[in-house]
Simulated scan of single mutants.
Amino acid sequence: MNPISMNFIHLRTPWVITWWSASYLGYAYMILGSYVKGFILIFLEAFINVNSNLNLGILYSFTGRFEMAKQVVDVNWLLFYVPIYIYSIWGGYGLTVDLNKYSILADRENSSMIPFKISSWEIAFLDKRKPWMAMALSLLAPGLGHLYTHRVPASFYTLTWWSFIAYKGNLFPCIHLTAIGDFAGATMVADPLWLIFLPSIYVFSIYDAYVNTVEYNRLFEQEQKRFLIDNYQSANFPVPE
């Protein structure tokens, strides 16, 4: 824990992390707290996807326009996507298995934690937070839920990335035109090449912020339990396993 962010490890299901690797490059590493790899892979996801027109190919395929999908997809860029995609899935699964082992060892060690950090830049401390609030903030704008749980790097990157993609996809003009009933106009201004990124970003932000909040609360309870045992409980009291 430092004033900029609180990073931690806990038991995770490897196949869930694998699914996130498959849904969007870099999300597995973001969930696991490996921000640098996550940021790089998320950037590569958008860069390669846009240049290969992969999202358009997905859109046309799901709507039955297979010939159009073949025409718009750039095979050179698409094949470049394959090895990075495989690496992301393999790396995310392997890192989850390794971190689970360290998490088990950390629980058994039961080492002390410093629940408060302060500097000239920021203040960070463990406290109880509401999981539903993290979900609501992430739904309002992806990244706000991470800010609520004091994961500033993930919050900044996710919020910036969402804003950029929303701008490129003309999300806000679409919302405005839809609100006034101009559905044809909303369809005209929408750019599906960019907008198709948004469902993954929203679902990831809601899921990750919720899980982070739950685990932060568990970490807070562990720290409080240890503090009370060390400072207030009789040394002769039998602690239940």
Score class of each variant (00 low, 15 high):
7 N>E: 14
30 M>C: 04
37 K>V: 15
136 A>C: 15
7 N>A: 06
154 A>F: 09
185 G>Y: 08
161 W>M: 12
6 M>V: 13
128 K>M: 13
179 A>Q: 06
114 I>L: 12
210 Y>K: 06
35 Y>K: 07
153 P>C: 03
42 I>H: 10
175 I>L: 13
144 L>N: 05
169 G>Q: 03
171 L>I: 08
101 K>T: 12
233 Q>K: 00
232 Y>I: 00
95 L>K: 11
103 S>H: 08
225 K>F: 12
25 L>Q: 11
238 P>E: 03
79 L>H: 10
182 D>F: 11
137 L>C: 09
180 I>V: 11
157 Y>H: 08
216 Y>K: 12
43 F>R: 07
70 K>A: 08
156 F>I: 15
63 T>L: 02
18 T>G: 13
165 I>K: 00
128 K>Q: 11
77 W>G: 01
208 D>L: 01
93 Y>V: 03
27 Y>K: 03
147 L>A: 14
17 I>N: 07
214 V>W: 12
138 S>I: 12
85 Y>D: 05
71 Q>F: 08
49 N>Y: 08
179 A>S: 11
10 H>I: 04
227 F>N: 10
135 M>K: 12
150 H>F: 10
7 N>I: 12
125 F>N: 09
215 E>N: 13
58 I>K: 05
47 F>E: 10
158 T>H: 06
208 D>A: 05
231 N>T: 09
44 L>P: 04
122 E>A: 12
56 L>M: 08
32 L>I: 05
164 F>Y: 13
222 Q>R: 15
173 P>W: 06
106 A>H: 12
61 S>P: 00
4 I>S: 12
72 V>G: 03
47 F>L: 07
148 Y>V: 06
189 V>H: 04
134 A>K: 01
123 I>F: 07
20 W>S: 00
74 D>S: 07
197 F>G: 01
97 V>T: 05
107 D>N: 15
197 F>K: 01
105 L>F: 11
222 Q>L: 14
166 A>E: 02
